[in-house]
């Protein structure tokens, strides 16, 4: 593995480290709150994995968030908007029907550009856009994560009320005494 690939995979190393840290805390910690926080770290690593896969990097071209500049409707005329269409090609798989149309236009524009001149084509390829879908998926997953954490903490409050402790081994000890 060359240093370039090693550092190129930087995000993935972070994902793996976070995941293992979180998982280790869940397994090893006897304190219920710490377990839940470990679980949180574990989930966060997956969010990062998704966002990483959506993010494009390119040494030459500008890569930016998938935000339409100047609106969709009036964008066909000007050059700067063509970049958007190229970006949409990169996540064509997930484009909605409308986006699909836009992609078709982009293809048409590109072929025109081929006839029209190299300068035009160069400008078209200037800007790339990240895939928004993984980020959107993660919004949902974050909501799920918050719900899980909230529910877990609420349960821990009840456990604390009943047992007077949040250490798992002490709780099991108390249960044994009862039996």
């Amino acid at each position: 593995m060359t240093p370039e690939t090693f550092f190129g995979l930087f995000n993935y190393w972070i994902v793996i480290c976070l995941m293992m840290t979180g998982f280790y805390i869940v397994i090893s910690s006897g304190n219920l709150i710490k377990t839940v926080i470990g679980l949180n770290i574990f989930q966060t690593s997956v969010f990062l994995l998704y966002i990483t896969m959506g993010k494009l990097t390119d040494p030459v071209k500008r890569v930016t968030a998938p935000i339409l500049e100047g609106g969709h409707g009036d964008s066909h005329g000007d050059h700067s908007a063509h970049g958007e269409h190229v970006a949409q090609v990169s996540f064509e798989e997930h484009a909605s029907e409308q986006l699909h149309d836009a992609v078709k236009h982009a293809h048409a524009d590109l072929s025109e550009a081929g006839h029209g001149g190299a300068e035009h084509a160069h400008e078209v390829a200037e800007v790339l856009y990240s895939n928004p879908l993984p980020s959107v998926l993660m919004l949902t997953a974050i909501v799920v994560g918050i719900a899980t954490t909230a529910l877990a903490l609420a349960l821990i409050v009840r456990i604390r009320e009943d047992y007077g402790t949040i250490e798992e081994d002490e709780i099991l000890e108390l249960d044994k005494e009862l039996q």
Binding site: F42, L155, Y163
Partner: peptide, 22 residues
């Protein structure tokens, strides 16, 4: 009083399972 504890244990394992699935 064992119910919240049982639920929390299920929550922890269940969330690990669901996160693996994700």
């Amino acid at each position: 009083r064992r119910a919240p504890l049982a639920s929390l244990q299920y929550l922890i394992l269940g969330t690990i399972g669901a996160t693996f699935f994700l």
